[in-house]
Design a protein around this nucleic acid. Structure first.
Lengths: 256, 256
DNA sequence: GCTGGGTGTTGATTAAGATCAAAAAGCGAC
DNA sequence: GTCGCTTTTTGATCTTAATCAACACCCAGC
C-alpha cells in the first residue's frame, strides 16, 4: 500500500512530497461524496439522513495558517468538522501564557466546549491552510430531534471526546516526558492512518512549543525528547518531519 | 445563614457534626420532590417532562463505602446522577497504578465515559455511604428524542463535562502543586455551596492519595501542601476536615 | 545573494516535586 | 480499652524537567 506522502528515496524523509501535500484538500461539496464521511459526523446515517445533514452544513471559505476559527469568549453558534488541514485549540492562563487543549485533524469535530456554556472556552486557530464544515448548533439540535440516529451519533461523539480528555488527564498526571511524547506521536500516527495517510511518516504542523503546551512540557524538553528518541533509533526527526522507524519500541515506552 | 455542618464551638472544627451527616440522604423517591432537581438533569424541564424522566429512572439500593458502581470495561448501560454521598472514578495504568479521573458530588452526572465506546473507560467507587439514580441510557436516548428540552439539557451536560476536562488539562500542564491544591479546594467549595452546604467548612471524603492521583501529585506533596497552606493561615486542616479561613488568599494563589 | 524573526537544538544550572524512610495519628474490630 | 491496619505527617535525599543561555537553522522578504 502506498500513501500520499510515500517517497521512494532512501535517505531523505521526502520533504518536498510532504510539503507539497500536507493533507490534500477534500473538495467535497457535500457529505455524500466526502471521503471523510466514514470517520466524521455522518457515520451510522443513511443516505437520506446524510442529505438532510448536508442541508444545514455551511462550507465557508478556507482559513489561512494562523487564522482563527473562533476565539475564547466568542458566543457559541456552531460546532465544526475539519475538512482539510489541521487546527489547535488553546486557552490563555491568568498569567498570560497559552496552553494548548487539543489538535484537530480531518474528520474530527471541534468546538464542543461551547455547548454547555453557550460561549467558547478556548480559541481555535488553523495550523496550516485548512477548510472546515460549519454546523450551526441550533439546527443540529433541531435535526437531531428528528433523526434519532443523528442524536445518537452526536452523543457518541461527545462521549468519545470525554474519554479522550480523561486519557490526557491520566497522561499528564503520571507519564514521564518521554512517555508523553511517545503517546503523542502514536496518537498522530493512528489519526493520520484514519484519514488514509502514512502512519509512520508525517509532517508536524505544530511547533515544539505547541506540543509542549499540550503535553505540559517546555519546548526544550520536547526537542530533547525527540533527539533522544532519534538517538535510540525509534524515530527519525528532521525539523518538522517525523518518521517512526521502530513502532514496537515506541509502543513499549508506554509500558507493557 | 447556617449550614448543616455549621458548629458553634470555637476551637474544634466541628468533627462529630460533620461526621454524623457527611451529606444527608436525599429521600426523594422522584425528581419532582428532590431538592437537587435544580442542579441535576431536570433543569429546564417542565413538570410533565420531569414526570416522564422520573419514570425511566431506577433508584437502587444505596452503596456502602468502597463499593463499585461499575468497573472499567463493564458494558455501558446507564449514566448515573449522584443522589447523596460522593464517588471517585479511576483507571488503572499499564503498570498497575491507579489514577483518579474525577470526584462526583450530589446532583452531578457520571458514567458518560461509556457513551461513545459502549463500555466504561473507568471504574467508579463510592467514597462513603451513597445513593444514586440510575438512568438507563437507551431509554434516556429514546426520551430525549421525544423531549427536545431533555436532549438539549443532556447535550449541555456533556458539553460542561468537556469544559471541565479541558480545565483540568490546563491545570495539570501548567500549575504548581500549591496552585493545583488551591484550585481543588475551591472547586469543592463551590460544589458544596451548590448543594446547600458550607462552602468554607467541609469534610474530605477522599484520601490524600486519591487527591494526589487526581492532581498528578504524590500523597506526600498533597500533605505538605495542606500543611503549608495552613501555616500561611489560608486554611485549617485537621485530618479530613478542611476550613477555608482566607478565601481571598486562596483564590489569589491561582493568579490575578 | 543577504538580513531578520521565528523556530529548534544543545549545554549548564537550578528548583520543584518524587522517592525513600520513619514515626505519629486515626479508626475499626475485638 | 488494646491490636492491627490504613492514612497522614515530616524529614532527608535524589531525579526529572524547568530555567537560563547561547547558538544554529530555516524560510520570507528585500
Amino acid at each position: 500500500m502506498t500513501y500520499q506522502s510515500a517517497d521512494a528515496s532512501g535517505k531523505s524523509l521526502g520533504t518536498d512530497v510532504l510539503r507539497a501535500r500536507p493533507c490534500p484538500h477534500n473538495a467535497a461539496a457535500s457529505c455524500s461524496n466526502c471521503r471523510l464521511s466514514d470517520l466524521c459526523l455522518p457515520i451510522a446515517l443513511n443516505k437520506s439522513e446524510i442529505q438532510q445533514l448536508d442541508n444545514i452544513i455551511e462550507r465557508n471559505r478556507p482559513l489561512g495558517k494562523g487564522e482563527h476559527l473562533y476565539r475564547q469568549r466568542d458566543e457559541f453558534r456552531s460546532v465544526y468538522a475539519v475538512r482539510s488541514g489541521s487546527f489547535k485549540s488553546y486557552t490563555l492562563t491568568s498569567d498570560g501564557k497559552s496552553r494548548v487543549t487539543g489538535f484537530y485533524m480531518p474528520g474530527e469535530i471541534l468546538g464542543m466546549d461551547g455547548i454547555g456554556t453557550r460561549s467558547h472556552g478556548v480559541s481555535t486557530m488553523a495550523l496550516e491552510h485548512a477548510s472546515i464544515c460549519e454546523i450551526p448548533f441550533s439546527q443540529l439540535e433541531r435535526l437531531s430531534h428528528q433523526l434519532p440516529n443523528l442524536q445518537s451519533r452526536f452523543f457518541a461523539i461527545m462521549g468519545n471526546e470525554i474519554v479522550k480528555d480523561q486519557q490526557i488527564h491520566t497522561l499528564l498526571s503520571s507519564y514521564t516526558a518521554e512517555q508523553r511524547l511517545a503517546s503523542f506521536l502514536l496518537s498522530l500516527s493512528t489519526r493520520y492512518a484514519r484519514c488514509q495517510r502514512s502512519p509512520d511518516r508525517f509532517l508536524l504542523q505544530m511547533t515544539r512549543g505547541d506540543i509542549g503546551e499540550y503535553l505540559g512540557l517546555t519546548l526544550e524538553t520536547v526537542s530533547r525528547g525527540f533527539s533522544s528518541l532519534q538517538k535510540k533509533a525509534i524515530i527519525s526527526v528532521k525539523s518538522r518531519e517525523i518518521a517512526i522507524t521502530d513502532m514496537t519500541a515506541l509502543k513499549a515506552i508506554l509500558g507493557d
